[in-house]
Design a protein around this nucleic acid. Structure first.
Length: 152
DNA sequence: GCCAACGTTGGC
DNA sequence: GCCAACGTTGGC
């Protein structure tokens, strides 16, 4: 059973255009337990992802991605020079996880947050709720389909 | 740049 | 284990 996700990135740090150039990327630096658990326990190869631009004007879904490698140790937690370093982690005791995702497409129409908020069928999406800070969020198949249509 | 929401930390 | 203080996220 395939699952669907929304992943947030600040375009000043990593945008859909960077992603399109790279083709694939690892999603390191998530330091939130809820988001960690989704990546570690639930994301599977083949799952589809809405690539979301946050903390920008306007915020919204910029395109699509696909999971190509399931959860594994976020090795930046082992690097003392990294800002993601976690002294409690070791190769045998991974604490933080990441996944690899592949670029699928950049939307012809950027689906901004206003549109997400008003589109029928998306009322329950986590990202439209106030104060929703989670950077990796589950979405339903139906929600994914609606957003994909809005973007194409 | 402000600040509300919310997660994390640490004193007790 | 409570909760105040603090830090971060992210829309506006």
């Amino acid at each position: 059973m395939k699952s669907y996700w929304l992943m947030k990135s600040e375009p000043t740090a990593y945008s859909i255009d960077n992603f399109q150039k790279d083709k694939t990327t690892f999603w390191n630096g998530v330091r939130n337990y809820q988001a960690r658990n989704f990546m570690r326990d639930q994301m599977k190869v083949g799952d589809q992802v809405l690539f979301y631009h946050s903390n920008t004007e306007p915020p919204g879904v910029a395109g699509l991605a696909r999971v190509v490698k399931a959860g594994y140790q976020d090795h930046t937690e082992l690097d003392p020079k990294s800002k993601y370093f976690d002294p409690k982690a070791s190769p045998d005791n991974p604490i933080w996880f990441m996944v690899d995702i592949a670029f699928v497409k950049k939307f012809k129409n950027f689906v901004d947050l206003d549109l997400l908020k008003t589109a029928p069928g998306l009322e329950k999406m986590m990202v439209v709720k106030r104060g929703s800070r989670l950077s990796v969020q589950p979405v339903t198949a139906k929600e994914f389909e609606i957003v994909e249509k809005l973007g194409s």
